[in-house]
Amino acid sequence: MPVPEHHLPRIPVALSSSSVYPLGVAETFSTAEDLGYDGVEIMVTHRAETQQASVLNEHSWRFGLPVLSIHAPTLLLTQQVWGSAEDKLWKSAELARGVECGVVVAHPPFRWQGNYAVRFPELVDEIEERTGVVIAVENMYPWRAGGREAKMYLPHWNPVPFGYRHVTWDFSHAATAEDDSYENMKALGSRLRHVHLTDGWSNGFKDDHLVPGHGNQRVQEAMQLIADPEFGDGGFQGAVAVEVSTRAARNKVGERERMLAESLAFAREHLGQQG
């Protein structure tokens, strides 16, 4: 059985397993426990340990931390995981149920994914209704080449103007898109269900996933926005998951932990959770 969540703060802060890559699930839980995170987000990959509720629940009990979100294998690098694009969403929702977390993060479909891309909004609604799990569609960014934008996502890389009931907002993706996170999160209101805490520079294509405060996004203001109990309809109802790239720190002793501790301290400060 997974760890109950009733001891969590109103807005819990999770550590994404992508933040410790190429290390695995055990290291994610261990690092999160050592640094004082409230839980973890698991990105489903080709590694079997990310796909099995029994394994995740065992780690959850061992380290005393819940799984707060599942990231579906909807990245280009995980196209071979769990079969068809539709199966990826269904299996992610079932995994979320197995670890008793209520949120699955999913990227919008690629235009070349045919019928799946066309019926994606309908599929999201169906999965939510049948499983009780929220599918929070994540903002992405335009792909640019030779000064032109390639239309990769259907209907768009930004889910905000469309009818998704639940959205994940990622600051690094917003930076790459040269978008304003604060204004988009404000516009989402109660539709904002999950946040990937990171940062980036508006530089065209590079998806930086920096420690928050190290880029040019309005991260501080956005965290203070969702910390307001009057945000949306009755306050922000989701979690904040730290998703920063630490791969460059893998050969520097303690550097990964320092980056993740700084990210957590940033979240605590601007969500008003200090003291």
Rank of each mutant, 00 (worst) to 15 (best):
A85Y: 08
E122V: 05
E230M: 04
A174D: 04
P12I: 00
E243Y: 06
G254W: 14
A85R: 10
D125F: 05
A227Q: 01
S181W: 00
K91F: 03
M1E: 12
V55G: 05
R250V: 09
S18E: 01
V13D: 02
Y182D: 01
Q237L: 03
Y182H: 15
E86D: 04
H194V: 01
L271N: 00
S60G: 03
P109Q: 13
W143R: 14
D87F: 02
Y116K: 08
G64M: 06
Q80F: 12
E230N: 14
E49G: 09
L76K: 12
K151A: 14
H156F: 09
V40C: 13
H6P: 02
F236Q: 06
T45H: 08
W82S: 11
E243S: 07
R47W: 11
A248C: 05
L225Q: 01
L188N: 05
Q224K: 15
W112P: 02
E33H: 11
E129I: 04
S16Y: 06
L260M: 04
I11A: 01
V124F: 04
E129T: 05
Q274R: 08
E94L: 04
K91H: 15
A222P: 02
D233P: 00
W143L: 13
F29E: 11
A222H: 00
N184W: 03
V240D: 11
R97W: 07
I127K: 13
G163D: 14
R250W: 13
V253K: 11
R119M: 11
K151Q: 15
S202M: 15
S172R: 08
N115F: 09
G189A: 06
V105I: 14
K88C: 12
S16D: 07
Q224L: 04
A145I: 09
E5M: 01
S190L: 04
L210T: 08
D208Y: 03
V81N: 00
R111Y: 02
V134H: 07
R144G: 03
E86M: 08
S69G: 07
E86L: 06
P121V: 00
W61R: 12
Q79C: 01
P2Q: 09
L188E: 11
E243W: 06
L271C: 08
H59E: 08
L89K: 08
D179F: 06
P142N: 09
F231S: 07
E41G: 13
A265Q: 03
D199S: 01
V124L: 09
V40Q: 10
L192Q: 06
V242R: 12
E255P: 00
Y182M: 03
K206W: 13
N115V: 13
L123T: 00
D87V: 07
A14V: 00
